[in-house]
Amino acid sequence: MTTARYERARPVAVMIERNLRIYRHTWALLLAEILEPILYLGSIGLGVGVLVGHLPGLGAPSVGYPEFVAPALLATAAMNGALNETAFLMYNRLAVERIYQPILATPMSVGEVAVGEIAWAVLRSVMITVGFLGVIAVFGLVASPWVLLGVLGAAVIGFCFACVGLLVATWVRGFPDFQFVQLVMLPMFLFATTFYPLGVYPRPVQVAVECLPLYQAIQLLRGPALGQVDAALLLSAGYLLVLGGLALHWGLRRLRRILSV
């Protein structure tokens, strides 16, 4: 790496370093975030899986229900991990603790702080993914070595939702507003083909579901996990990257207006 490049990456690295230091006090949170999808997997994947049996029509020979649910739970965990980190914690740092203010009194800029926080959120998504993949491998639920592509997929998902979270953090007026965030996130989690295939819905509903970012995130992880790697993955990744990029662009503009007046 050239020095100039290093200089540009350094502020981002410092934001990550700060978060890593905090993590030494709050590592249990990461554990909880890995535990949650595992609980869902144990309960719905394995428990309800017995009631469901095998899913027809999802590839040959047929896909077991836990193998079907696991990547969706992973995508959700990667999404939540990134979104919570930016939306909730960034709002807290922005409006309650106001710690960005003294940081901006140093040579750090608003853009560097924001990109640093997003990079950290992406890193967290990846950490959650690695932890979760380790556990499902132990459970014997890994259907294909392509599942490792999921680490890259989680980074894309993390980027998208971290940027959306940044935008949310600039809009929120107070903690009660996060109820509305929940009101969007919960139905998305429930309906984005997490627990059953798209075929359950009538066609018009299918189209609507296909537009959900979580649906694209699930597609990005489910294909490789089931050993199906094709060009459609690029489409999902592209969708998430574009959405993230737009959210980042808009969020940064709002953040600059809030922080440097």
Partner: peptide, 22 residues
């Protein structure tokens, strides 16, 4: 809003959607 939306969403997604498979 939450106490109506929450059960409605869960019952629709899991009761109806997943229920179809079960």
């Amino acid at each position: 809003v939450i106490s109506v939306a929450n059960p409605a969403l869960f019952l629709a997604a899991l009761g109806f959607g997943l229920g179809k498979l079960v």
